[in-house]
Amino acid sequence: MATPRLKALAATAASVPITLFGLVLVTFLIGRVMPIDPVLAIVGDRAPADVVAQVRLELGLDEPLYVQFWIYLGKLVQGDLGRSVMTSHTVVDDIIRFFPATMELATAAIIIAALLGIPIGVLAAVKQGSRIDHVIRVITLAGHSLPIFVLALISLLVFYATLEIAPGPGRQNILFDDMVPTITGLLTVDSLIAGEWEVFWDALAHLVQPAGVLAYFSMAYLARMTRAFMLDTLKGEFIITARAKGLSPARVIWKHAFGNIAVRLITILALAYAGLLEGAVITETVFSWPGLGQYLTISLLNADMNAVLGATLVVGVTYLAFNLLADLLYRLLDPRVR
C-alpha cells in the first residue's frame, strides 16, 4: 500500500524543480523577446549613443541569450532579482512590500467566496429545479459573465459615490499611513498586533469592497462546482442507504453527501485561491490597491523588465505551490487515494 503512494509523492516532488525551471525559462524568454528596450527605459530616449552603449554593456545585454539566462539564473538562486528602474529598490524588496497587500485581498476574498459559495451550491443541488435553484443559477451566471472591472466600478459608484457607506479606493486612510509597524505586511493583522483598533477598522473597511468584488467571481465558480459535485453525489446509492438508516436530512446532506465532495472542494478552493493571488490585477487597479498586480502592471507599462520578471516569477511560484498543496491535501484526505 505504502510503496505506490510514496512513488506518487516522489513523482510529484520530482516534477517541482522541472516545472520551476520551465517557468523561469519561459518568463525570461518572454521578457527578452518583447520589443522593449530596457536600456531606453533607464537612460531615456534622448541619451547620447555612447551612454546607451555603455548601459547596454553594464546590463550584459550584449551577451548571447543563453549566457544572459545563465547569469539571471545564477543571481536568482542567490535571491537576487535585480533592481527595479521605477522604484529604484531591489525587486525582492518591492515584492515583499507589495505582495502582502495582494495576499490580504485574496485571502479575504477566498474566505467570503467559500463561506457563501459552498452553502449556496449545496442548497441549489438539494433544491434542484426549484425557484431558489434558478435564482442561484442567475447569480452565479452573472459572476461568470460579468467583466470584473464593470462590477468593480458599479460597486464603487453605488457604495462609495452614491450611498457613501464604503471608503474609497486605496488600502487605508492616508492619515493612518505608517502608523503600525510592518510585521506580516497584512494591514488588518499588523494593526491588531499593534492594538490600533482605529487602524484595524479602517483597513477592514477598505478591504471589504475590493475583496467582495473579487470574491463574487470565486463564489460563483465555487457554487457551480459545489452544485455539480453535490448533484452527482446525491444520486449515489449510499445516499439511499443513509436515508434508509433513518438519518435526518441535514445529516444525509452534510455528513454523507458533502463529506464525499469535501476533498474535491478543498483542491478547487486551493486553486481558486492561487488564481486570486495572481489574478487580482484589474481589481487592484480599479481600487488603487497597492498589490502585486498593480506593481506588475505599472512595471510593464514602464518597461521595467526586472520587476516584471520578478513579479511574474512570484505569481508562477505561488500557483505552483498551491497546485502542489492541493495535490498533497487530496492524497492526505481522501481514503480512496491514501
Binding site: 446509492e237 449510499f238 438508516k245 433513518g246 464525499n260 481522501d334
Partner: peptide
Amino acid sequence: ESAMRAIRGRRAGLIMQDPKFSLNPVMT
C-alpha cells in the same frame, strides 16, 4: 418525514445490491 424516519432504520432496514455503491466510500 419524522414519522418516516422513526420507521426507516429503526423498524425496517434496507439492504441493496452492491456494497461498492451502497456504502459511503469516505467513512469507515
